[in-house]
Design a protein around this nucleic acid. Structure first.
Lengths: 133, 133
DNA sequence: CTAGTCCTTCCCGTAACAGGAAGGTCAAGG
DNA sequence: CCTTGACCTTCCTGTTACGGGAAGGACTAG
């Protein structure tokens, strides 16, 4: 398979696939003409990475997940620990975003949104409120 | 005020303040010795930016907010529109994170997390589930 | 033989800074 | 006067995960 096929089948852009090779996530073979020659195993890895990325794992986390995936001697506890750590980060991000959302919603709802200059959003940002810690 | 004072009072790192000057968010004066000389108005702007950043506004959004803040002829509707657009982005991000969280939680709870290699998290990532769109 | 599509590498740009090097400035102390 | 230390300056590199685009080789269809 050439990179175009793999891109279509994995849903990842060719650029991204080249990048993943560059950083050593995958190691496709090369044809005589210099084209990358992807095996099914490469495609599977790319799909794996794509799904892990879709769950918000960083590239380095994906690298660890791939290593665990390749390691038949792994302990599932290692995988679970990685996933739980990531879950914690997701939860923290959600908390942070909800705090922003709550504060901003309050400011927005207090703003008339007409053609006059008075704006609680701007004064809220200008004054040291309790808003943002 | 020197940059150290402003950093302490605004809560922003000196590096960040220099960066904000570099991209034109603030324009502090200069003393004869070459040191930046901050006025109260600079400090206020930095505090404003800091709070806007704390609410998740991008630098460019902060730039627009600052422009609106400086413009006594502004319409509050312009500010509100900016804030509402940002609120929408926050909401979308939360939805995305919650979807990740739900999927990952399901995988994690299905994983024994012991010393054996069998791991639903890895197989879930390896197989084309309905998990990630 | 040519047009069009695919592939290659290489280099720059993104957001919002952080870290650190090399060197100038200033206030205090001996 | 000299030094020490804390402050300030600019400049350069690195971060994350790619995207855009140039310059040029490879392959396929007509």
């Amino acid at each position: 398979m050439n990179i175009g096929d793999v891109a279509a089948r994995s849903g990842l852009p060719a650029k991204t696939i080249r990048y993943y090779e560059e950083i050593g996530l995958i190691r496709p073979l090369r044809s005589d003409n210099g084209y990358r020659a992807f095996r099914d195993s490469d495609l599977h890895k790319l799909a794996f990475i794509g799904r892990a990325r879709g769950l918000g794992f960083s590239i380095e986390e994906c690298r660890k997940l791939l290593a665990l995936y390749d390691d038949r001697q792994r302990a599932s506890s290692d995988v679970k620990a990685l996933a739980e750590a990531h879950l914690t980060q997701i939860a923290e991000k959600i908390v942070e975003l909800r705090a922003m959302e709550a504060t901003l919603k309050a400011l927005v709802s207090a703003c008339a949104g007409d053609d006059r200059p008075d704006c609680p959003i701007l004064t809220g940002l200008a004054e040291a409120g309790e808003c943002c810690g």
